[in-house]
Design a protein around this nucleic acid. Structure first.
Lengths: 199, 199
DNA sequence: CTGCCACCCTAACGAGCGTTAGTTAGGGGG
DNA sequence: CCCCCTAACTAACGCTCGTTAGGGTGGCAG
């Protein structure tokens, strides 16, 4: 990662540490040490520890939303059907996560450490994001393209599976990001596939 | 929750607080306050904060393993086929989570806060547990009962979806534990169902 | 040469951390 | 009546926390 600004280097270091030890488990001096600076010197670049967390979380929220926007725009749901729509959302999500697990992990787990106002605003954005999945699913259910699954539970199931990537994905692992995207898109699509179950 | 011993009350309170604010985000004095005691007085019942976490995590690990044991014993895999096996594992997991989300949540998220030795031992147990899912899946793939999915990625997908329950399940929510178990078992089974995908 | 600005330093603040030590109050059994 | 046990207390330890204040240095623009 080639840093352009000091501020960016700090956020990168903070992302790594928040990912590994959580927000509460990371001290300002830990972050400073990672960029070879005294703890107090951080405050020349940053207004507070909260501010660093917020910056990471908000930026990552933007990335997820933009990726979903692009996927939906490119895919033109109405033309390609609900299956393609769901697959596009899944692939977009996997790509954002694997492109920067550390920030994605902070986004997924540490938003609870935001102060009340910011946490509430982030909760709304997360809910709106989840609604895209709910809508894609209920749309497929209504048209008969999908099995008659519960859209809310199904969206939660799929989305938490996608977010679970942050717990096990490693760039050096066996599966490349695109291989994971393939498998996860396949699993998500199968999960809503119509037909009687052979148990 | 009717407490029998003081120690149990402390672990209950700690589970709630660890669930809400994480291990690092919870102080010994926070736990003490929740049971109406001075911070230092906790140490009459507990040897350290780590010890409380370990106790919660280990006990919950036992519960997951026992539930899976029972499910497999009751289901007699070889008789009922891989689909029933996978469904039994999924239902057992959902039941443990919904029976005590707070402890389950601590188990899922806070095991990283254990000291090295205990964390390593817990990592091994988690891996062994995940292997049950991998085995059930690869077994189904080999016999042709399931689609030719990647057992490792699929087990991770399903298991992280199940663990994701701790992020959204509330006892007062719309769906009862058994309704969730139904839906999640259905989704997991569909995800490995053979057949060409309609996208 | 001067002034500014980005950058980092040391020192310190008050609060809180996990934990130890020593003590006290109350109650049941010999 | 005394003894010990349980369960809690207060006080304090050394350390770390997030954050503020104020000062210094080096390079670039005027």
């Amino acid at each position: 990662m080639v840093e352009t600004t000091r501020r960016q280097a700090i956020e990168d270091a903070a992302s790594t540490l928040f990912h590994e030890h959580g927000y509460s488990g990371t001290s300002v001096r830990d972050i400073a040490r990672a960029v070879d600076i005294q703890g107090a010197s951080l405050y020349a670049h940053v207004t507070s520890k909260q501010d660093v967390l917020w910056s990471i979380v908000e930026h990552t929220a933007d990335r997820f939303e933009t990726a979903a926007d692009d996927a939906e725009a490119l895919d033109r749901t109405l033309v390609n059907g609900p299956g393609a729509h769901l697959v596009a959302l899944v692939r977009a999500h996997v790509e954002v996560v694997t492109d920067d697990i550390e920030r994605a992990s902070v986004f997924v787990h540490e938003w609870r450490s935001l102060d009340r106002i910011r946490r509430d605003s982030m909760a709304r954005r997360r809910d709106a994001y989840e609604s895209r999945f709910r809508w894609a699913i209920s749309n497929g259910v209504e048209t008969g393209a999908f099995a008659p699954v519960d859209p809310v539970a199904t969206a939660a199931f799929i989305l938490t599976a996608l977010n679970g990537l942050v717990a096990w994905y490693r760039p050096s692992g066996r599966l490349s990001p695109s291989a994971i995207a393939d498998r996860y898109a396949d699993l998500a699509l199968r999960a809503v596939q119509p037909g009687d179950l052979r148990s």
